[in-house]
């Protein structure tokens, strides 16, 4: 039992965890029954699954190659964009009326996606300044 064996075990564990989570994401995509429920499985499980695979790749390149930190870029990119993609897909599901209708917002008139006069809304995440 030396250091190389330990690194190989860690790489193997990271690979198995990543593969399992990615698989669970796709199983959830197929199994769940409404559009909004289906959104949960791939956005979370797949993101952590790919993150785990990238950690394995990074460890592998440090243990058996020249070493690179490039995988961090992909990881950061995926973790920043996954919520944005999920938000857009949720808006599409609400817009197409695929799920039970959302409740009334407590303070404002309506939700941005359902607002009939949202031509004036400049961006998705930009709230009105008060």
């Amino acid at each position: 039992m030396n250091v190389t064996d330990l690194v190989e075990i860690i790489i193997a564990v990271a690979l198995v965890i990543g593969a399992l989570f990615t698989l669970v994401g796709s199983i959830g995509l197929l199994k769940l029954d409404t559009a909004m429920k289906r959104l949960h499985a791939p956005t979370k499980a797949a993101t952590l699954g790919i993150g785990s695979l990238l950690v394995a790749s990074m460890l592998h390149s440090f243990a058996f190659g020249s070493g690179s930190l490039k995988e961090i870029l992909i990881m950061v990119f995926l973790f920043v964009t996954a919520p944005i993609s999920a938000n857009f897909i949720a808006k599409v599901a609400i817009h197409r009326g695929q799920d039970m209708p959302p409740p009334e917002p407590p303070k404002d008139q309506n939700w941005a996606t359902l607002n009939p006069t949202d031509e004036t809304v400049p961006g998705i995440e930009a709230p009105a300044k008060t």
Binding site: P105, N110, A112
Partner: peptide, 15 residues
Amino acid sequence: VTADMSDEGHCLLIH
């Protein structure tokens, strides 16, 4: 999952 925001930005809709 964050699904939407109210039109004036005072509320988040979450599923």
